[in-house]
Design a protein around this nucleic acid. Sequence first.
DNA 1: AATATATTAGAAATCGATTGCATATTTGTA
DNA 2: TACAAATATGCAATCGATTTCTAATATATT
Lengths: 343, 343
Amino acid sequence: MKKGSENTMKDIALELGLSSSTVSRALQDHPHISQETKIKVNEAANRLGYSYNAVAASLRNSKSNTIGLIIPRISKYYQSTVITAIQNKLHEHKYNLMICQSNESPELEKELVNALYASRVEGLIVSSTLNTTDFTHFDVFSRSNRPLVFFDRVPKNYPAHRIQGDDYHGAHMATNHLLAQGCRKVAFIGGPLFCNLYRERYEGYSDALKARNLAPDASMAFFHDLTKENALLSCEKLFSGKKDNWPDAVFCCNDTAALAVTSYAKKCNMEIPGQLKITGYSNDPLTEIINPTITSVEQYPSEVGTQAAGMIMNLIQQKLKPGKNFISVTVAVDLVKRDSTDK
Amino acid sequence: MKKGSENTMKDIALELGLSSSTVSRALQDHPHISQETKIKVNEAANRLGYSYNAVAASLRNSKSNTIGLIIPRISKYYQSTVITAIQNKLHEHKYNLMICQSNESPELEKELVNALYASRVEGLIVSSTLNTTDFTHFDVFSRSNRPLVFFDRVPKNYPAHRIQGDDYHGAHMATNHLLAQGCRKVAFIGGPLFCNLYRERYEGYSDALKARNLAPDASMAFFHDLTKENALLSCEKLFSGKKDNWPDAVFCCNDTAALAVTSYAKKCNMEIPGQLKITGYSNDPLTEIINPTITSVEQYPSEVGTQAAGMIMNLIQQKLKPGKNFISVTVAVDLVKRDSTDK
DNA sequence: AATATATTAGAAATCGATTGCATATTTGTA
DNA sequence: TACAAATATGCAATCGATTTCTAATATATT
């Protein structure tokens, strides 16, 4: 290594009395270079500790081989499973993934979009924050015709490709299951309705009720950030009046909330599933380890991730022609029945 | 946007009849540029939808503003918490993080090291795979004087900076706690001893025993990948002989194993903590939601992540002079006593 | 023998931002 | 008035890999 920095193709060329063009081609196994030269070049590259400079190639080729990912949090089971699937799929295509957490902050999300754009990622996969209602900061990607794929939390009126779970159906199945078990007062704990996830789940829930001539009861529906604390507060409201008005089931839009409801019910000595049935959403492994085990909706996050990465790659490789047509993939979900609903 | 591609500083310069030098300096708020020009440049940048090209800057400056992270899996509580802390810290310094999963494969790990090096990340943070015994693939970083920081799973005899939890002390505390509760036959379920984590925990465990004149019993110590399945197999061995030889406590090196032991014991109708006491490691939130709640060792993953990112940044900014001195930070741990050990 | 066709290699421009040095203009000072 | 100093801007090289076009051999064909 000369002058404290890195050896380049030029250095290899100098060493061998070749031009850097030849070195470049040799390393790429280009057909116009003789075997002999290729061997010499590779040997010299090793000897000099040469390391390919992807940044330089990226500039020259306008090709970073990198995809960006923006996600509210990576720590949840669903999210981290999706990420892993994306990464595995991209790796097959020799693409890197730049993962950024928006921490549920729309401002940070905006900043990250710009940073990733500046890094010239070739495409962007996003699950937006709960509070992102203005999606114009994603325009840079659409404008420059760089693939933009949303998953899970997708915008309502923004032109982009999307991968979603079948939220309506998942909620419908879960609610229906509760009703089939004899429940008649099913409460709903979800997130704000301006977010597609919760809107669709709420619709699935209420349609299931209506199909049995039950009217959704506004006093039994809660819409808030789905933390343990918020869920417990909702429980207190649900079980504050006289016993006759208590729900006999709670449909929760995530497993954290379902868990909170379960622990609340246990603390109050309610019998699960006898007195109260509970369903969660996402099929987090924790639903299986607590007592009682909790019925939940499997979203197949690996499938979601694989689809998202596959779609991005297709778009980049122009297998999907750019244009005004936006693809919307719905990944099927399944209800996993467990003890909290008497199976 | 001309010719289908991106507007550059040159385009702004052309638009305003300036040179690209001036545009570059104006956008950097360089003192030699007049206010008037700066305003004009910024205005034109907006008008033309200019977007900074970080790749070009990266090449020119030999500065990518990116740190690499290689980690076996991102989905565990401990890991994802560390990552989040790293990311938050780096963001303060306007650095990006490139996260890669090695999936516990040393070959993939090696490939990722090279890919990240090729992407010219300015530093690398690593938790190695369980089976990485040869660390020479990290040499590229040491050789070129790029900061290399290991955390959690750190190499034994490889020159690099490291952040570790106080594994010895954690195991010692947990074991001691079990002994103080009256246990005399404490089993050990951990990972392979060639990994620093488990070696140190095993030493903490056995030293705690010895301090009470108890000899570690080889038939009660298990070393394997800490999956649920493996832990259950170990349980079957532990509780196969006559009852007199059964352990009265199990120290587990992660919470997954502790959970498996708990469910095994419950299935066999053993009383916890009466008949069997159990401790885990990492203080995963799940330890608090199952019945009984599980005593575990808090590792303060956020602190670990913050330290790792802080150290990398200091090294990059040369606050820590490079050389043969390698820093080793030990992050304190705490024992969190819960029902599985009778508190 | 002469021309055609592979085969192999090099020269130089390019990607876009940065910066040391030179230059031009203005203001300040003796 | 003349020279120093400050202010504002431009020129051109640079970072490292890639690629188009050109050129030099070598082999093949008639």
